[in-house]
């Protein structure tokens, strides 16, 4: 049948349809690229004027953000540092837990247990970020307030914990895939030489999967630095220099909190924050691609 169709196609009028479809595919493919290009160009065009007006050094390294004051100040260093610290904190908590969880799922857990735990982890990935924020606000924030006897529990610490939980699923699933891909022979050889199971997992399997695990970490960084909704609810949103127990403002929340009613230079400066955030995420993506490529080659 297939052959007949092809022959008829050659003789009949399928060719023009083929090229039409090819054109449609090309257009669809181009649309995705076009979106990236348009967003990039738009961000650069709308982000640069404010940076030019404020001055790159004052903008990036200014320690004060007072966008509507009589003498407005547009320093985003507090936000940059908060985003960096917050992400680093989330990685510090999330990666060890996520990695051990991946080892557990991939190597240690009995098949039946893993079959239950894995969908639960996937479910964790599917929970909308606002729900993480809500739980953080209802549970974590009062807990921090009472434990440390501060005025309000909204703080960098709360944001870090929420982010750590949020990045867990991606770290777990990417690390697990990498661990599963380690050739059985490596582990069998290690066991045959007298190493225990646990020694094998950490000395043989994990090093063999290291670029995959590194990719998981970078993916976690990307997710943490781009999150806005959840941390807006638990971080307090005041542009202080970051401290574990004070209210802080991330790059993402810096845009989200003020955008609605902003105007003039303030609005332009928010776009400039977007540009800075965009460059951060671009860098992270490049790093991620390097790791993934190495993973494929290695």
């Amino acid at each position: 049948m297939e052959k007949g169709a092809r022959q008829k196609g050659k003789a009949g009028g399928v060719r023009p349809l083929e090229s039409v479809m090819q054109l449609i595919f090309f257009i669809c493919g181009f649309i995705a690229i076009a979106f990236v290009l348009v967003i990039t160009i738009y961000l650069i065009i709308s982000g640069l004027p404010a940076i030019r007006e404020i001055g790159l050094v004052d903008f990036l390294f200014g320690q004060e953000w007072a966008s509507t004051a009589k003498e407005p100040k547009f320093g985003i260093l507090p936000m940059i540092l908060t985003s960096v610290y917050g992400t680093a904190g989330a990685i510090l908590i999330g990666v060890p837990i996520g990695f051990l969880m991946a080892v557990f799922l991939s190597k240690v857990a009995p098949r039946r247990v893993a079959a239950v735990v894995r969908p639960v982890v996937d479910l964790l990935a599917g929970i909308p970020s606002i729900v993480y924020g809500l739980v953080g606000l209802m549970v974590l924030v009062p807990f921090i307030r009472e434990t440390f006897n501060t005025a309000a529990g909204e703080s960098l610490l709360a944001a870090i914990v929420v982010l750590a939980v949020m990045i867990l699923p991606s770290i777990i699933s990417v690390s697990e895939t990498a661990l599963n891909a380690v050739p059985k022979e490596y582990e069998e050889a290690s066991l045959a030489l007298g190493a225990t199971d646990i020694e094998t997992y950490f000395r043989i399997s994990a090093p063999a999967a290291k670029s995959g695990i590194a990719a998981a970490v970078v993916l976690g960084v990307g997710r943490a630095i781009g999150e806005a909704m959840a941390i807006m609810m638990v971080a307090g949103n005041v542009a202080n220099m970051p401290d574990l127990l004070t209210s802080v403002r991330f790059l993402t929340t810096g845009i989200a909190v003020e955008l609605a009613y902003s105007s003039g230079l303030q609005r332009q400066a928010l776009f400039s924050i977007g540009l800075v955030l965009f460059l951060f995420i671009m860098c992270i993506n490049v790093i991620l691609n390097v790791f993934l490529k190495r993973d494929k080659e290695g």
Binding site: G236, N237, S247, V257
Partner: peptide
């Protein structure tokens, strides 16, 4: 103003 928290 010295705010502890700001909301949108």
């Amino acid at each position: 103003c010295v705010y502890t928290n700001e909301y949108e």
